[in-house]
Amino acid sequence: MRLTCPLCGDRDRREFYYYGAEDYLHRPVEGAPVADWDNYLHLRDNPAGVTKDLWYHEAGCSQWLLVTRNTVTHEISAVELVAERKA
């Protein structure tokens, strides 16, 4: 597996660290209902198809990346910088 870092370019899997689902980017606001926190912390989809998750380019530019990939075909369709994403 290879990821094309928006800053560093095409790099090997070993340079990256997997963090988890994109859900971690959508933290509930303070005082949100318990159900929202439960969802944020514990409930994850397990799609056969397109999924988005977070990777850390630890051996490169030290940026968090939002990776769109397909769990069936292994196609990686997008790699974006979390720091520059539109909220």
Binding site: C8, R11, R14, E15, E58, A59, G60, C61, S62
Partner: peptide, 10 residues
């Protein structure tokens, strides 16, 4: 100039 690894060293 790139940031990468030499074996396991950044």
């Amino acid at each position: 100039a790139v940031r990468t690894q030499l074996n396991h060293m950044n």
